[in-house]
């Protein structure tokens, strides 16, 4: 008993140290110019990356717990694309004039609420099928993602160029000009979602036992699943708004976390996954930006590595 608990704690400490180290390096390395300019600028960037990493990690682990497997993630199931589609539709139907008049915090809130509504409806319907095969679910998710993206790009074509540029600004809050408003709202969202999420940590362990076992232990299964899906939808909205869609990042981090942590208890897995995500995102950005001196290619690298991991998981027959 003692032994099984010592390892996760050790892992947590080591990962925390690495994450802090990576962040410090990112803030200070190659800094030319005035500190009072560099620190807030880079600080914003780090905060947005940490928030996004945390959101991706937590949402993926929770989603996998509900889905009872290690291969489905919100991104693979098209959550990110759904968010982009919703945002585009909003610009499309309201028009940029009315949008810019709206309080951005209110707008973001509106988007998240719509996202939660759609996500829960869509995915509850998908998961409700009694004996849908996992492969069908994954394939449907991927194709849904493609459909959402095509619809979004269709609407983006029809929007007039001015509105389109506004949309582009909003879609990819690029790191060099993260609006502090958006960051603040994101932070608030993540904080609220986290408070709710951490309350339920024991529930996730029970959910992981499977539907029948969870009901037997007195869990209101349907409610628990819905709650988790709501949390996931909120977190995915935040991460997509901050860094755009990255299909395989969550898959990478969650599977790594299960390998590293040495336990499947969510109170360890969740922070381990979040720390790994921070290390990967901030560390990856650090290496690409400061060492190789190129910019946003990180998502491409993640896509490459994550895709290979996905194939390995398929080959090893983990996705049943």
């Amino acid at each position: 008993m003692r032994e099984t608990r010592a390892r996760p704690i050790r892992v947590l400490l080591i990962l925390t140290a690495i994450a802090v180290g990576v962040i410090v390096l990112f803030m200070t390395l190659n800094a030319r110019g005035r500190w009072d300019f560099i620190l807030p600028f880079r600080g914003m960037k780090v905060v947005s990356m940490v928030l996004a990493a945390y959101a991706v990690a937590v949402s993926t682990v929770l989603f996998q717990t509900v889905g009872h497997n290690r291969i489905l993630t919100p991104a693979i199931m098209g959550f990110d694309s759904l968010y982009i589609l919703l945002q585009t539709s909003l610009v499309f139907s309201l028009g940029s004039a009315r949008l810019t008049a709206l309080d951005p915090r209110l707008l973001f809130g509106l988007e998240v609420v719509t996202m939660v509504l759609f996500a829960v409806l869509l995915y509850r319907w998908l998961f409700s099928g009694t004996s849908r095969s996992l492969h069908l679910l994954v394939l449907v998710g991927i194709v849904f993602g493609l459909l959402f993206r095509s619809l979004a790009s269709f609407m983006q074509r029809i929007i007039d160029p001015n509105e389109f540029s506004i949309l582009q600004d909003r879609l990819f809050a690029n790191f060099n000009s993260v609006e502090s408003d958006l960051l603040l709202v994101s932070f608030g969202m993540v904080a609220v979602a986290s408070l709710a999420a951490w309350q339920l940590v024991p529930v996730y362990d029970v959910l992981a036992l499977g539907r029948d076992a969870a009901i037997n232990l007195g869990l209101d299964y349907g409610r628990a699943v819905t709650t988790v899906l709501v949390l996931v939808a909120v977190l995915v909205s935040v991460s997509t708004a901050l860094v755009g869609p990255v299909t395989f990042f969550g898959l990478l981090v969650a599977n790594l976390a299960y390998q590293v942590a040495g336990t499947h208890k969510h109170r360890f897995i969740l922070p381990v996954a979040a720390l790994l995500a921070v290390i990967c995102l901030v560390g990856g950005q650090l290496i690409l930006e400061r060492v190789f001196a190129f910019d946003t290619a990180l998502s491409i690298v993640i896509e490459f590595l994550g895709g290979i991991l996905f194939l390995v998981l398929l080959i090893r027959g983990i996705a049943r």
């Binding site: 290690r70 029970v206 036992l209 232990l217």
Partner: peptide
């Protein structure tokens, strides 16, 4: 069960 659990972990779930 997809989680990696010890016997004691599993039995303790009975107290949930």
């Amino acid at each position: 069960v997809t989680s990696r659990l010890t016997v004691r972990d599993l039995v303790e779930f009975g107290r949930y």
